[in-house]
Write a protein that binds this DNA or RNA. Sequence first.
DNA 1: AATAGTAAAGGACATTTGTCCCATTGATGA
DNA 2: TCATCAATGGGACAAATGTCCTTTACTATT
Lengths: 185, 185
Amino acid sequence: MIRENPALLRYLSELHLANGPVTASDFPPKTEIIGQEKNVKAAFVITSGIAKCYLHENNGRIFVQEFFGPGELFGEVELIRQSLSFSCIEAITHLSAFRIGQDDFHALLHADSRFNTLILQSLANKVRYKALRHAHNQSHPAADNLVRLQQTFPDLFHTIPKQDLADYLGITLRSLNRILRGTDQ
Amino acid sequence: MIRENPALLRYLSELHLANGPVTASDFPPKTEIIGQEKNVKAAFVITSGIAKCYLHENNGRIFVQEFFGPGELFGEVELIRQSLSFSCIEAITHLSAFRIGQDDFHALLHADSRFNTLILQSLANKVRYKALRHAHNQSHPAADNLVRLQQTFPDLFHTIPKQDLADYLGITLRSLNRILRGTDQ
DNA sequence: AATAGTAAAGGACATTTGTCCCATTGATGA
DNA sequence: TCATCAATGGGACAAATGTCCTTTACTATT
């Protein structure tokens, strides 16, 4: 599913208009915005476009955690943990995002209680959603998972490459094609 | 892996000793401490014992998210989201835990900046760990996942029932037995 | 036009995992 | 002691998925 967070996007827009510590940035398709095992210097909130969040596994496989849409936040986990990134973020379409530098992010967390609450809620939502998605993915055949994904995003096949979809479902491209052939999409 | 959080456990112990809004509670094995789709009235931090956190899927399957050990926090996602529980928590061994009521939890979040930081870190850790685990689980054969689990908890088979291990790995009990037979454990 | 690169589709076969069943063991209560 | 139930172990076959390889189509570049 494309993850979104309208409440956070609204608040960041307010901060930006009020000359808060928020800058607008742009990325062309396929830009790697955060690389795996790298230092993270800022958090981002998407204003438009779609990105993928994925992990390289040690056996060469790639697993897509989520597709991120407007309002989705990334980089915050690394800033809070003060650790290297554990995943890659890459633009799929053209991407616009608000950027909050490391120090500003921590300052907001401590000084701005509304921001603090929005981040807590964003993290809690991520924990919950990851739990539901992992459980569903492991407990159902890939065909069911694909149907579920497509219900939340009908325009799937025109926006997201097949290889990315397969990596999201945790199957090979060959298996994805087999499923699509069976259900004749 | 058994999830733990020593820093949080330490701080909760301090709060408890200082007569903070923290009470000690005990549960015998197999107690369902939080049920799926129920109201959650408090958060808990385990002081001793092991619990499982799992989800019922609509097709009857069960998926174990994690095994929780000392210091691990649960119930906080529901309190922050102000929503019904999405998972079950059940004691495997005898379990002792600190309990923080809903109102006290929110009061601490706002008034106690150290508590706030510990919760942020706990959530960030959960997001990260779920990402790594999901990616590993989907990208490797079940046998590898089992080996990995056993490395972090050698006493696995004497503490956790096989059915729970299978539900954690996302495979059937039959498949787990097949793997164990192959590697002759 | 020729070439290279990338996404996509699918055949053939191997491997992994699930399903259905039944047997064994150990604990517990009648 | 006997009956019962839960946990465990595994045979036989079906279904799902991976691996390897080939083909086609489209795009971009020279």
